[in-house]
Nucleic acid binder design. Structure first.
Length: 269
DNA sequence: ATGGTTGAGCGTCAA
C-alpha cells in the first residue's frame, strides 16, 4: 500500500511577516509537509494557530529571537526526533528532525538551516565562514556515524550551491561564499553520507537550476543571477520513489516576497 | 572595488 508524500521546503525569512503567503504555497504545491527556515520567531511568540488554520494539524518548531528558526507543519502525524546534537554548541535553532508516520511505515525528516557564512570566504579571518564549514563537517560526521539511513529525507536552506550550474556564473562565483570549493567539497562529502540529490534527479546537472535570487537585483527575473541554495535529499532507498518536483519561481514575485522560493518533491512511498 | 535590499527590533547585526 503506497501513498503520495509531498514535501515542501521554504526559507520564509520571517514567519510572522509572511504567514499570509503560506496559503499560496499550499495551493501551488499541495504539500503534505511544509518545512520552513528563518522563521525568526522565538518559541514564546510562535503563531501557534497558523499551521492548523492552513490545514496542518501537526507541527513542530524551534525558534529564537531575531534570526534563525525552523518549523515543520504536517498533515500526517509526526513525532519529534531529538537525537541530534546542539550543532557547534551554539544553541542555534538551525535543525529540526521528526518522524512521519505513513501507512507504509515511518519516514525520518530533517529540516536544516545551514549558516550563511558571512562575506569573506576565509576561515581564519571570518568566524562566520569557519562556523559554516564546521557546521557542515559536524553534520557530515553525525550522519556518517549512523549505521543505517532508512527512509530519510533531508531538506532545507543549505546555503551552498554545489554544482557548476547551481549558480548563474560558475567562474564569477568561485570566490563568493556559497560556491567556493571549500563549501561545495564539504557539501558533497555530507551528501555522500547516504543521500541522493532529489532535485538533480529531475533536472540534469548541465541545466541551470536556482531557488534563490538576491534582493539586491533591480529585476531578479531579467538578471536571473540565481543560486540553488535550497535542497531536497533522500536516502538511497527512496531514490526510486521520487515522482516529481516543483521550483515555485512565481513566489519570487509575491508581495513582500522572500528571496528564496518554495521547493517541493513528491514521493510515492 | 563598491553597492545594491531586506528583516528583527531599536544597537546594528545577519543575510
Amino acid at each position: 500500500m503506497t501513498e503520495r508524500l509531498r514535501i515542501a521546503t521554504w526559507n520564509i525569512n520571517s514567519l510572522r511577516l509572511r504567514a499570509p503567503l503560506l496559503p499560496g504555497l499550499v495551493e501551488a504545491l499541495r504539500p503534505d509537509v511544509i518545512c520552513l527556515q528563518e522563521t525568526k520567531v522565538p518559541d514564546s511568540l510562535f503563531p501557534v494557530n497558523v499551521p492548523a488554520q492552513l490545514g496542518y494539524p501537526f507541527a513542530a518548531w524551534r525558534g529564537m529571537k531575531g534570526y534563525n528558526g525552523v518549523a515543520i507543519f504536517s498533515r500526517l502525524p509526526l513525532r519529534p526526533l531529538d537525537i541530534a546534537p546542539d550543532w557547534c554548541a551554539r544553541g542555534d535553532c538551525r535543525h529540526l528532525a521528526v518522524t512521519l508516520d505513513l501507512r507504509s511505515g515511518p519516514v525520518e525528516l530533517h529540516n536544516f538551516y545551514v549558516p550563511a557564512g558571512g562575506d569573506v570566504p576565509d576561515r581564519a579571518s571570518n568566524p562566520k565562514f569557519a562556523h559554516k564549514l564546521d557546521f557542515v563537517a559536524e553534520a557530515t560526521h553525525w550522519f556518517a556515524a549512523r549505521t543505517t539511513l532508512p527512509r530519510t529525507v533531508l531538506v532545507g536552506d543549505l546555503n551552498i550551491a554545489p554544482l557548476e550550474h547551481d549558480v548563474w556564473s560558475h567562474r564569477q562565483m568561485l570566490a563568493v561564499v556559497s560556491h567556493t570549493p571549500a563549501e561545495t567539497t564539504a557539501l558533497a562529502a555530507w551528501q555522500r553520507r547516504g543521500f541522493y540529490d532529489a532535485l538533480r534527479h529531475f533536472v540534469p546537472p548541465e541545466k541551470k537550476l536556482y531557488t534563490w535570487w538576491s534582493y539586491r537585483n533591480r529585476d531578479w527575473r531579467a538578471s536571473d543571477r540565481g543560486r540553488r541554495l535550497d535542497h531536497v535529499w533522500v536516502s538511497q532507498d527512496l531514490k526510486d520513489n521520487l515522482r516529481s518536483h516543483t521550483i515555485h519561481r512565481d513566489a519570487r514575485d509575491w508581495p513582500q516576497a522572500s528571496d528564496h522560493v518554495p521547493v517541493g518533491v513528491e514521493l510515492e512511498v
